[in-house]
Structure formats: C-alpha cells, structure tokens
Simulated assay, not measured.
Amino acid sequence: MSSPKMKEFQKSLHDVIVKQISRHNSPPVSQKCISTLLQIMNNLLKEPYNEKFRKLREKNHTFNSNVLQIIGGREFLIKVGFKSNIVDFEKYFILELKGPDKSGEKISDELFLSRQLERLEIAQQLLDDYLNKVTEQAETVKRMQEREKKAEELQKAAILQSIEEDKERRHKQQEQLKFHRQLEKERQERAEQNTNLEPQSEDYEGANSFEQQIINQSEPKPFYRPYHHSHFDKEK
C-alpha cells in the first residue's frame, strides 16, 4: 500500500474511533467496543488463515453487543475489510484474504494478503493507542459512579435514620398524649366524685336546720300575761 493510501486509511479509521465510537457512546461502552475490536485484530494478525478468526458470527452475543450494536463498530470492521455474508443460512462478518483490492485492480493473492495484514496492523495500533485513553475515561466515569453510589447510600441511610427518628418522635408524642388523656380522665372522674358529694352536704345542712327547728320548738317560750285595764283598777 502506498504511503498516501496508508495515511488516508489510517485517518479514516481514526475518524471512526474518535467521531463515532467515542463520541456517540459512553466511555465504558467505548472501552468494550475498542477492546473487542482490538482482540479481533490481534487474533487475525496471529493466525490470519484461521477461519474461526476471519468469520465472525453476527449472533455471537459478545461480538453483537460489544461491536455491531455500538455506533461505529460495524463501520470500523467494514473499513478494515470485513464484509457481511450469509453462510449456511446464518449471517457472518468475513474477512477475505484473497481477491481484488478495494480499488478493483487485479492483484495477486500474496499482495492482497500483504495489504490486508498492513491494514490490520494499522487498525491494531490505532485501537491499542486509543484503548489507553478510553480506559482512563472509563475509570474516571467508574470512580464518579462509585462516588455517586456512595452518596446515594449515605443519603438513603440518612433518610432511613430520619424516618426512624420521626417514628420515635411520634411514638413519644403518642405516649405523652396517652398520658395526658389518662390525667384528664382521672381529673374528670375526681370532678364527678366531687359533684356526687355536694348533694350529701346539702342534705346534711338541711338535717341540721331541721334539728335546730326541733330544738327551738322544744324550748319553753316566755309567758306574757295579756294587758287589761282591770289590773290598774284594782290597785286604785
């Protein structure tokens, strides 16, 4: 691959990583996508003829969730040279190691393989370089999430403590109210008892008055002789 084409290819992959994978996904999601893509590149460079590494089944959970479902993941594979094909009624992303170049020029399989491996090396280097950056971002996000989680736990504990304190306060208020109600009940009972005693006191006073009348009636009254003019006549 000529130097201008290599630079153009490198720039196109860099744009996919930065402007799609990184920009439109959270750091943890971007980290998983880039890490999975890097593992694919590593496997291919180690064993380029291993069909297991060149044929990626779309229904594979890890591959599908970490790459195909992520913005930029599918585009990155296509840029590298993968194509979507159906094999035995199942969809695969397949990397061909022989055939015509993207430009359509007829080249030998050896040259095509050499260019394909060069693309994989460029992709591997870009992914490896950016993985460190996105990992730092993901770690920062993780620490922030942990702090937020801890803050939420502290807030939840404070709310639970406030609820318990409120329950205790309400319990004390209920106990105090119950105590005051008991005092009020006892006061009313004493008032009713005093009310029941008042008529007995009046009867006692009435009895004393009646007894006094009897005593007064039993005492002899002083005798007064009626005045008559004959009394004076006898003395004359």
Rank of each mutant, 00 (worst) to 15 (best):
4 P>I: 14
53 F>L: 08
131 L>M: 09
19 K>A: 07
123 A>P: 06
48 P>L: 14
194 N>H: 01
101 D>K: 03
22 S>E: 02
69 Q>H: 04
25 N>R: 06
36 T>L: 15
229 H>Q: 09
192 E>R: 12
215 I>Q: 01
33 C>M: 10
69 Q>L: 05
138 A>P: 13
71 I>E: 03
30 S>A: 08
55 K>L: 09
11 K>D: 03
127 L>Q: 03
47 E>A: 13
155 Q>E: 12
63 F>G: 03
175 E>Q: 13
223 F>L: 10
31 Q>A: 02
68 L>T: 09
91 K>L: 07
224 Y>G: 03
34 I>H: 00
38 L>Y: 14
15 D>C: 11
21 I>T: 10
115 R>I: 12
103 S>Y: 04
54 R>V: 09
41 M>D: 12
196 N>R: 03
190 R>W: 14
69 Q>D: 06
224 Y>T: 14
2 S>G: 05
62 T>D: 02
153 E>G: 05
171 H>K: 13
135 T>P: 01
26 S>L: 02
57 R>N: 07
174 Q>F: 09
102 K>A: 00
197 L>N: 09
84 S>H: 09
187 R>Q: 15
94 I>P: 13
136 E>D: 05
151 A>K: 13
99 G>C: 03
91 K>Q: 12
208 N>F: 11
158 A>N: 03
100 P>F: 01
131 L>W: 13
12 S>K: 01
154 L>N: 06
25 N>P: 01
13 L>E: 05
101 D>R: 00
17 I>L: 03
34 I>V: 09
184 E>M: 14
8 E>Q: 15
49 Y>D: 11
174 Q>S: 02
187 R>S: 13
140 T>V: 12
143 R>L: 11
144 M>C: 10
150 K>T: 11
24 H>S: 04
90 E>F: 09
102 K>S: 04
13 L>T: 09
37 L>H: 15
228 H>P: 02
204 Y>W: 08
91 K>C: 03
23 R>V: 10
1 M>Y: 05
199 P>T: 02
70 I>K: 00
45 L>Y: 10
8 E>I: 15
214 I>Q: 03
212 Q>E: 08
149 K>M: 06
70 I>W: 01
53 F>T: 11
188 Q>I: 09
34 I>Q: 04
166 D>G: 00
201 S>V: 15
107 I>D: 07
21 I>E: 00
19 K>D: 00
